[in-house]
Design a binder for these strands. Structure first.
Length: 503
RNA sequence: CGGGGCGUGGCGCAGUUUGGCUAGCGCGCUUGACUGGGGGUCAAGAGGUCGCAGGUUCAAGUCCUGUCGCCCCGACCA
């Protein structure tokens, strides 16, 4: 057998490695529908974990869930001028509402709609239209609503989880009485995303505003969290937009303030998507496949019974069930430990490797020898696939949560160290060119990384780095009290921006 | 949408240049035996009409036209 479960390995062909990891872990696959993927049970279970945690965080910050239509009248998208520019293309449009049987047995669309309906690429306009009706008084504010939904963006080059024509996400939409309150909300949700990414996904992120060229169409300010993938590229993992009064003015979201004077609301929107699954894959997985942070792993401990005879099977399974019960009573991250017994009748080696490739944090083998010794054999996903440590059964139960915590921390630390190792501070355009053009070192998929550089928010900067396919990802909010002069325009800037290639 | 490549059992491929009998191979799958903390061994099976549509021909996986989809590069990516 090859040295690694995944072929090619990361350093050979990173994009192909990614696809093979997705496949080996049985997360998703292409559907017969152009650009649309099928999220398979294991992939969906990961999304459900993300939903559960995020939903709890949204509720804790005062938000409620609601649901708005999939279809948006074409005229709604025309309301906000900048929004129109950004969304004019890449939308799916419904023009008919009926199918009739043609003479050749084919179905023909008929019943042309008076106004075409656009399948939502995002919901600012339809939600804003409702907010305009709901908000009348300052007493109606703030409106704090989140929607879990699917959206469609007719992307030309889809990639599983990273960019598909249809994807799942959540979109929060809020309306406030004051600018400060809306800005505060924008940053609060950015923090929620950053906390979720770092604590639950074990994925270090930089958070900060995007340059004007990368803003959401119609936004006054767009903030993002940016993570570094194992090939050194940046992935925008979440965005939070301060929309100012742009949408409120376009859609008439108005209220009477406490002095009886009519004012426009200040609105925000923020979202993360199933793209986060792609982010987790590219942050943590190795040449043996998926590696899941315990907090989002659908199964944290997989029990693997080993037996030959029926008597052994009975005894081993009984032990597994008891262990399952005891572990389920233990807690990790405020929840019962998620444990499963894999009692399928198949070859042991295949079974073990399947769980390696699926990223299960802890594998526990229990056989007659362990039974006799009152022990279990424990393997960690963050160690070599063949490593096993014997441990007294009682000790394992007591320490399981600690082991999961250790894996979770270790994954974050490793990802952070990787990002730091591939982050540099540069002081000239020549240095930037050299950094991004330097070929990858042997055995590494990394070309470039994050360059922290003084640049102004200016088209000249964009043009300068365009040939390198490098863009300004964001201007980090934290640890960035470092004024200087733009290396392209010579203008003074208050801090460094992060330059990187991105997904 | 522009340039390039590709579509043959579940997966990976050969066959297409020079059309010709029942379309092959590896892996996987099923069954049995041997095994048994091993991505095991051996044997016997099942499974495809060659992306789709049309055309040329006595004959098409193989030639022609169209179309759909996938991959890479570019543009796009809220």
């Amino acid at each position: 057998m090859p040295d690694h479960a995944i072929s090619p390995i990361r350093s050979q062909d990173y994009p192909e490695w990614y696809q093979q990891v997705v496949r080996a872990a049985d997360l998703a696959e292409q559907s017969p529908v152009r650009g649309c993927m099928v999220i398979k049970p294991h992939g969906y279970a990961i999304w459900e974990r993300m939903q559960t945690i995020l939903d709890r965080m949204f509720k804790a910050t005062g938000h409620q869930n609601a649901y708005f239509p999939l279809f948006i009248p074409l005229s709604y998208l025309e309301q906000e001028a900048k929004h129109v520019e950004g969304f004019a293309k890449e939308c799916a449009v419904v023009t008919h509402h009926r199918l009739e049987l043609g003479p050749d047995g084919k179905l023909i669309p008929t019943g042309k709609l008076e106004e075409p309906l656009v399948v939502r690429p995002t919901s600012e306009t339809i939600i804003g239209a409702m907010y305009a009706k709901w908000v009348q008084s300052w007493r109606d504010l703030p409106v704090l609503i989140n929607q879990w939904a699917n959206v469609v963006r007719w992307e030309m080059r889809p990639r599983l989880f990273l960019r598909t024509a249809e994807f799942l996400w959540q979109e929060g939409h809020t309306a406030h009485a004051t600018r400060d309150e809306a800005v505060e909300e924008t940053l609060r949700m950015l923090d929620v995303y950053a906390t979720f990414a770092e604590r639950d996904l074990a994925m270090p992120v930089l958070k900060g505003p995007k340059p004007s060229g990368e803003r959401f169409p119609g936004a006054v300010d767009t903030f993002s969290i940016e993570a570094m993938m194992q090939d050194g590229k940046a992935l925008q993992a979440g965005t939070s937009h301060f929309l100012g009064q742009n949408f409120a003015q376009a859609q008439g979201i108005k209220f009477s303030n406490s002095s009886g004077v009519e004012e426009f609301c200040w609105t925000t929107s923020w979202g993360v998507s199933t793209r986060l699954i792609g982010a987790v894959i590219m942050t943590h997985s190795d040449d043996d496949g998926l590696c899941l942070p315990p907090r989002i792993a659908p199964t944290q401990v997989m029990l693997l019974p080993i037996h030959r005879t029926d008597e052994e099977r009975t005894a081993v399974l009984a032990c597994c069930r008891q262990l399952e019960a005891e572990l389920s009573n233990a807690r990790f991250g405020d929840e019962p430990i998620r444990v499963r017994i894999d009692a399928r009748d198949m070859r042991g080696g295949d079974k073990v490797w399947q769980h390696v490739k699926q990223g299960v944090p802890l594998r526990v083998e229990i056989g007659p020898r362990d039974l006799a010794a009152g022990a279990v054999s424990v393997s960690r996903r963050d160690r070599g696939p063949r490593e096993r440590a014997a441990m007294p059964l009682g000790q394992f139960v007591a320490e399981a949560a600690g082991l999961l915590d250790d894996i979770q921390r270790g994954m974050f630390d490793r990802a952070k160290a990787f990002r730091d190792q591939h982050s540099v501070r540069l002081g000239s355009t020549a240095e930037v060119v050299e950094f991004f053009e330097r070929p990858a070192e042997k055995g590494s998929p990394v070309q470039g990384g994050f360059a922290h550089v003084h640049v102004a928010d200016d088209p000249a900067v964009t043009a300068m780095f365009d040939p390198l396919k490098v863009t300004v990802r964001c201007i980090p909010l934290e640890g960035n009290d470092d004024p200087g002069t733009c290396i392209v325009t010579g203008r003074p800037v208050t801090g460094r921006s992060v330059l990187a290639r991105s997904y």
